[in-house]
Design a binder for these strands. Sequence first.
DNA 1: AGCGTGACGAACT
DNA 2: TAGTTCGCCACGC
Length: 105
Amino acid sequence: MTAFQKRVYTALEQIPKGSVTTYGAIAHHLGSNAVRAVGTAVGKNPNAPHIPCHRVVPVSGKIGNYSGEGGVATKMALLKEEGVYVVKDTIVDFEKHLYIFDTND
DNA sequence: AGCGTGACGAACT
DNA sequence: TAGTTCGCCACGC
């Protein structure tokens, strides 16, 4: 477990239920521009359901990927359980559910 | 210490 | 409009 991973996981826990965020938003929130590093961090350490990694999606409004059980199928299922509907691997009203990290200022 | 890979993103053709 | 390429930063070998 690296410090960078923890930052990513902490950021994910800030995502409220029924909302989603993007890798780019997380990267920017961490003060970086490396969406790859964020995706790598989450992907290599799902950290179990303790982390709502299913609420993380690319800015494309699509599902992206998922290393958990069932893959993207489970990911979109979890989102639907939270009120975020998904059709054809694409999030419905994506930007409406899009959560931006509170800059706290 | 250097190269390649990766749950992405934006620009180019 | 859609497919491809390079870039980004951290991690593994």
